[in-house]
Design a protein around this nucleic acid. Structure first.
Lengths: 332, 332
DNA sequence: ACTGCGAATGTAACCGGTTACATTTACGCT
DNA sequence: AGCGTAAATGTAACCGGTTACATTCGCAGT
């Protein structure tokens, strides 16, 4: 449309439309306060020049980035993708972009490089932390934007939290096994220091203590398929009649490991998982598990971040979970 | 450390260190050209004031965003998470951030809103497109930054491409089935217009034509577990001895559907998938499939984008695939 | 005609860095 | 001492918008 040389600036549009730059700016940010006549003139000039707003200029002046950073422990882990989708959805409606950073890929501790650089108002307008293993000191800086923790959490980190009712979910799962008559129940847990593992262990203990029981063993896994399979030998050695797994992937891995050892699920051992990933229904034996709505969790995290940014006090929101009964657990 | 009022600016640091703002700036961007003495003074002043660089200012001046945008068809689909991880890794090493946008969540066509706003130099320094179904006209604007297509692609979109050797993968899979003696082979494909489906269909045809054969049927699915399961009835009706599925999820879904119908894999029907998702090895019957390295694909896409940004000509890179033999396919 | 007032618009400072260019400094050499 | 040159530093313009504040305009009321 115009000279092919350099991209048109707001100034060019203003000159062409016969108005000031302020008016052009207002047409973009607050069209209602400019007269019909000027507005039309500006819109025409925009079309003629092919002008597009340079967001960098606006962002600098308004001291905002227009993006929120999500810190995920492992971007390749499908568990997080649905949470991210929920986050993304809410952010988009608020006109914000989603930045994603894999905390594994980044130097977590260096005082001057690595993660610290990202935790800055000029990098993101807010941060959603899905990784409970980060140093809380990182978030103490006055330059750090508002923070919301989702899914996993860490006591030292300030700001709102949104999490599934992990203890209740584990309690439901184990209560289900107890109701089926199981007494020798094993807990295939996540990493010891992980906040999810801790609260799920509480739920397990709560359910078992009603009957005066304890787990026949607690085995530590890594939330992965492989670690589930590798736990099979140790599980068998403990001779449980049922296993509660801290997530579905370990449960499915364990299923494979038990099959290799010639044991059948649920014939020899009953299994309950956690998360209700889509694959749970398609496992060798459809998996009884605890559903947590990951998309909702992401949405809620984004909403909390937005309201925190607007000055609302930070709160902790606990999302309900429910038992999803399939075929991997049955009476002794 | 300093006044709690407003965050320190580069000017404050300069005054404190007794140097000019230019020197401070140079300490950050090019420390080698400033004298030892000044450098120490600046570093000391930075610590004392708690100064942190405001990236917005720098970005505006340098007309760069410091981020690359990835356009994914469905963020909740775990297939993409590993690609994103690969992209993220390379970008991080180049000092760039990863922005993610779910193209489902966004108005694809509006001329003034939706996607178009994002395809702008002031939004991202480059774009990686993982969605082959976008209108190529979107990328024609002179304000659009460099584009790389990965995985799926669209002929009309300019720029480099990186893709797995889909045709070869499909050919390998079907040749494997032929070698096992299968003659009645069915193709459970992706959506008809999808670029992956198209090239995989070519590979299927290439392998079959060597024997003068054609698929006994082609069924269109949606790359999902559910669509695989739902295809079971139509599959059975066509009476194949083997099925090649365009991805692992449909294969696993189909496995479930066949089991419900009382058919065994590979006893009654052999199955081959595509992708080698982690779950493939843990399916009810470990799935023979075609491996494509998704992380590598993402890395390569990011590398191509970087070199394209540096002025290198855009090229198309085809990544090798390999057959991964497990237990879901066996001789007739 | 004059005043008052709200709506519309314009001017110019400002956001916080980077960097071209000018200037100063340090130092070796005749 | 005088000069030339390279290294180090400083000054101020610049990136491209937004917005506080001042100004002008339009119109109703007396």
């Amino acid at each position: 449309m115009s000279s092919p040389s350099r991209p048109p600036k707001i100034h060019d549009v203003a000159k062409r439309a016969g108005v000031s730059v302020a008016t052009v700016s207002r047409v973009f940010s607050n069209p209602d306060i400019v007269s019909e006549k000027s507005r039309k003139a500006v819109e025409k000039a925009v079309l003629e020049t092919g002008y597009t707003l340079n967001v960098l200029g606006r962002n600098l002046r308004q001291s905002q980035v227009g993006a929120v950073l999500a810190l995920v422990p492992n971007l390749a882990n499908p568990f997080f993708s649905e949470i991210l989708a929920g986050i993304s959805e809410v952010l988009r409606d608020a006109g914000l972009n989603l930045l994603v950073l894999d905390t594994r890929q980044v130097d977590r501790s260096s005082p001057t490089h690595g993660l610290r650089n990202y935790l800055n108002r000029s990098h993101a307008d807010g941060i959603i932390v899905l990784d409970g293993s980060l140093d809380p000191a990182l978030f103490q800086s006055p330059a750090c934007p508002p923070v919301v923790q989702a899914c996993e959490w860490n006591e030292g980190v300030p700001g709102a939290r949104v999490l599934a009712d992990n203890a209740e979910g584990a309690r439901l799962a184990v209560a289900h096994l107890l109701a089926l008559g199981h007494r020798r129940i094993l807990h295939l847990a996540g990493p010891r220091q992980n906040s999810l593992s801790v609260s799920r262990a509480e739920g397990v203990a709560a359910a078992l203590s009603c009957e005066g029981l304890e787990p026949v063993a607690v085995i530590e896994g890594a939330f992965t398929l492989r670690s589930g399979r590798e736990a099979a030998a140790a599980v068998i050695a403990a001779r449980p009649t049922a296993v509660f797994c801290d997530n579905d992937e370990m449960a499915i891995g364990l299923m494979a490991g038990l099959a290799e050892a010639g044991l059948s699920v649920p014939g020899d051992i009953s299994l309950v998982g956690f998360d209700n990933i889509e694959m749970a229904a398609y496992a060798p034996v459809p998996l009884t598990t605890v559903r947590q709505r990951r998309a909702v969790l992401g949405q809620e995290a984004a909403r909390l971040l937005l309201s925190q940014r607007d000055g609302d006090p930070s709160e902790t929101r606990v999302l309900p979970v429910e038992l999803c009964i399939r075929q991997s657990a049955r009476p002794v």
